[in-house]
């Protein structure tokens, strides 16, 4: 039993070290990479534009639900005027970065892990390496750099749409004055809140894209399956671990910044 626990712990430590080396190697590959920015723009398009509909839809419904729930809770204490404060701070400090990251993991992260897994399986990554090109610089670095910009942008969009959703349910459906809602938003949100929002978004972007790329890139090392099953197993692992790491990192960042 003790031996099994020890072996499992060692394998986790080994994988964490391997992941850290992989991420470091991907950033180091940016130095001297050829035509990197063209790939960054393409990766930004994949992560950003393609994920836009899901961000808009989930952002709107999150705001709508927050507005409804918040209104009923605040109404008990006769404090409906604070609805804007509740919706804005919840979205900016917590729900916006976390939910946007989870949506991006589901859409762009899973696609990235599956694509790299397939490229590994069909020897496309080996082909790049035999050409003398850096597979990290071509496949991973642009995605990591794009995530540092795209995740905060998507989060900002998510929050903006969510605020409009809160206003829609609070003012238009439940009869709260729009002016009261928006002035509460304006009074509540301060620079440190926005800073926390963007810090979280960029961190989640970096961690999840690196994790999805790591699992896809190493799909051939999967111990439980081979071929297409290894790709599916590594994609599942990438999405599950990314979702967990978003919530774990959220707790760590919040405890440092609050």
């Amino acid at each position: 039993m003790l031996r099994a626990v020890g072996r499992y712990t060692l394998s986790i430590v080994h994988e964490l070290g391997d992941f850290a080396l992989f991420t470091g190697q991907s950033f180091r590959a940016a130095v001297g990479a050829r035509r990197l920015w063209r790939r960054v723009v393409r990766a930004g398009f994949e992560q950003g534009v393609r994920c836009l509909p899901v961000i808009l839809i989930v952002g709107m419904f999150t705001g709508l639900v927050l507005g409804l729930q918040g209104y009923y809770v605040l109404n008990r204490f006769g404090s409906e005027g604070l609805l804007g404060t509740l919706v804005s701070l919840s979205l900016i400090r917590e729900l916006g970065p976390v939910l946007a990251a989870l949506m991006l993991v589901g859409q762009a992260g899973s696609a990235l892990a599956a694509e790299l897994g397939m490229q590994r399986n069909t020897e496309q990554i080996a082909a790049l390496e035999t050409m003398g090109a850096s597979s990290h610089a071509y496949l991973v670095t642009p995605r990591l750099l794009a995530a540092l910009v795209v995740y905060p942008m998507q989060t900002a969009l998510f929050v903006t749409i969510g605020l409009w959703g809160g206003s829609l349910s609070g003012s238009m459906l439940l009869g709260l004055e729009p002016g009261i809602y928006w002035s509460a938003v304006e009074r509540a949100v301060e620079a440190p809140d926005v800073r926390e929002c963007f810090t979280k978004a960029a961190t989640f972007g970096l961690l999840t894209v690196a994790l999805c790329a790591y699992h896809g890139f190493n799909a051939h090392l999967c111990s439980t399956a081979t071929g297409a099953r290894a790709v599916s197993a590594s994609t599942t692992r990438a999405v599950v671990q990314s979702s967990i790491i978003v919530l774990a990192a959220d707790y760590v960042i919040t405890s440092f910044l609050v």
Binding site: R34, R35, E115, Q119, T122, E123, Q124, A126, A127, L128, T130, M131, G132, A133, S134, A137, Y138
Partner: peptide, 27 residues
């Protein structure tokens, strides 16, 4: 240069982009 048994062509790139790739990335 190395020609793989499976050809190892990039399936998300066109024929021209596949041929451009080694020059683009290594020169």
């Amino acid at each position: 240069s190395f020609l793989f048994q499976s050809n190892a062509l990039f399936d998300s790139l066109t024929a021209l982009e596949n041929v451009e790739l080694p020059l683009e990335q290594t020169t």
